[in-house]
Design a protein around this nucleic acid. Structure first.
Length: 491
RNA sequence: CGGGGUGUGGCGCAGUUGGCUAGCGUACUUGCAUGGGGUGCAAGGGGUCGGAAGUUCGAGUCUUCUCACCCCGACCA
């Protein structure tokens, strides 16, 4: 086990915190509930962003930016939406400070009270639909396919690095369509983009499904989501895509004239993923030695560590390393040559393991003699000697192998942690003895879901899209059901 | 927001019934040796003890208030 990292078995939460701090991903800040994302953590987020952004562009979306502040009155227009967010909003009431007349520091200038208070956006539907109203008159103006990368604020009671902080970074897509069918198609298209990204880039298997009424986004008619399973058996919602129907169009009076000349309300979607994905990434793959990153999201994929006694040796090794480095970079692989003389090789090994670099290549005097290098994999912690003349191809291939292995490992874990149950007794027992996804029949009512939640802390994570039709009875009420849903305790 | 806990050099900690110049490990700096898994030895630098007020001849230690963070709940992405 690595120095200073609590083991997962000892204390999972502490392990998670240790990884975040020790791997240099983030820090606590002076502001309650807010964190500082450090350069290494932000580099990973940038890779996530870049890939997602490409995927959004490829599906026809454009980026734009809307204000951080939202007039309070906008919030009262869509009832469910207000209800969902009212309890966690930060509000701007004044616009000026003054020197404190009683002494030190500054104080709020009570004369500078805003006519209308401003809400710091917890999400942007309202300001965006208020704007779209001005952009849409005709069916020719549709669809509008816009995404924004932004920060949002939700005043949380209890915060955890990346998983839940008062301020977080995300992207929110907001689209407007002429027909219900088109909006629904968009909603499903985007949840599939998320699933694709999670699986192919993060190496994290996810289940695509819809939310139950209780878990649905405030203001949505249907919420699609991707649900992932973390190593401690808890579920994590990793992304959501909402079919908003005409709720916001009606609230903000957004109408268009159809080809036939009739005046109709616009159909809407919104979809988002956040820096929470960082938390998912950490908890899906990492081990007691530190972070494990999938090659496709690792800021640096290959690190070289020289082992030497003399300057002459270092010079020879450097020459060879730089040659290999160029070869790898020509293939689009990101590399780093750690030739610091201030720390020993063993220290570097431990450090790069902690930071999750997928591949480490060590080269020493013996390698110079034999024409080899030592290639170490972060995912399996195995090492082997490889001839220098085939290293570039070997490593290029190995990165793919690692990417795949990480995914398969997580998939195997999820399969082993997924249990079908047919009675409430089994349900409760499995939740305690073998945490993970529990597939069970449910009668479809909110009351049943609420009661199960009260008694077991487990919620319906989603109703899987690819779930088989199967006659059964609800584990709680005994009423008939024709499909299993996924229950789990969740983050 | 409720329960529990923590706060002392960068990090991790000790500091007894209040008492002398606030220690230890690690990290840091310098030198020498070392170098295929977190090096060794030696010498150095670094603290208004989270903050404020109070009790006292005297406060890291006692009292009150306050701030931050962690763990467990409730709420939530």
């Amino acid at each position: 086990m690595a120095k200073g990292i609590t083991s997962r078995s000892e204390n999972y939460s502490q392990w998670y915190n240790d990884i975040v701090i020790k791997a240099g991903l983030a820090d606590h800040s002076a502001v309650r509930g807010c964190m500082v994302i450090k350069p290494y953590g932000y580099a990973i987020w940038e890779k996530i962003q870049r890939q997602l952004d490409d995927m959004f562009k490829a599906t026809g979306h454009q980026n734009a930016y809307f204000p951080l502040f939202i007039p309070k009155s906008f919030f009262s227009k869509e009832a469910d939406h207000v209800e969902g967010f009212a309890k966690e909003c930060a509000i701007v009431t004044h616009y000026r400070l003054k020197n404190d007349p009683n002494g030190k520091g500054v104080t709020v200038d009570e004369d500078a009270k805003l006519e209308e208070e401003l809400i710091v956006r917890p999400t942007s539907e309202t300001i965006i639909w208020n704007t779209y109203k001005n952009w849409i008159q005709s069916y020719r103006d549709l669809p509008i396919l816009i995404n924004q990368w932004a920060n949002v604020v939700r005043w949380e009671m209890r915060t955890r690095f990346f998983l839940r902080t008062a301020e977080f970074l995300w992207q929110e897509g907001h689209t407007a369509h002429a027909t219900k069918e088109e909006a629904m198609e968009e909603t499903i298209k985007m949840v599939n983009v998320y699933a694709d990204f999670a699986q192919k880039w993060m190496g994290m298997p996810v289940i695509i499904g819809t939310k139950s009424e209780n878990e649905r986004f405030a203001g949505a008619l249907e919420t699609y989501c991707i649900e992932a399973l973390m190593q401690d058996g808890k579920a994590l919602q990793a992304g959501t895509s909402h079919f908003l129907g005409q709720n916001f169009a009606k609230a903000f009076d957004v109408k268009f004239q159809s080809k036939e000349g009739s005046l109709e309300h616009v159909w809407a979607t919104s979809w988002g993923v956040s820096t929470r994905l960082m938390g998912a990434l950490i908890m899906a793959h990492s081990d007691d030695n530190g972070l494990v990153l999938p090659p496709k999201l690792a800021p640096t994929q290959v690190v070289f560590v020289p082992i030497y006694k003399t300057d002459e040796e270092l010079a020879k090794i450097s020459e060879k390393v730089n040659e290999l480095k160029k070869g790898l970079e020509a293939k689009g692989i990101t590399t780093h040559f750690d030739n610091r003389d201030t720390v020993k090789p063993g220290f570097k090994f431990a450090e790069y393991e902690l930071k999750g670099y997928p591949i480490r290549i060590a080269m020493g005097p013996k390698d110079l003699e034999k024409g080899t290098v030592e290639v170490a994999r972060r995912d399996t912690l195995t090492k082997e000697f490889v001839n220098q003349d085939i290293v570039v191809d070997y490593v290029t291939n190995l990165l793919d192998v690692i990417q795949e292995n990480i995914y398969n490992k997580a998939l195997t874990f999820r399969e082993e942690s997924t249990t079908k149950v047919d009675s409430y007794e089994d349900f409760k027992r499995v939740l305690d003895e073998k945490p993970g996804f529990v597939l069970a029949h449910w009668d479809g009512s909110s009351e049943t879901e609420e009661k199960i939640k009260e008694e077991t802390k487990a919620t319906i994570r989603c109703i899987p899209l690819d779930g088989e039709e199967e006659k059964g009875i609800c584990i709680f009420s005994g009423k008939p059901s024709n499909k299993r849903v996924i229950f789990a305790r969740a983050y």
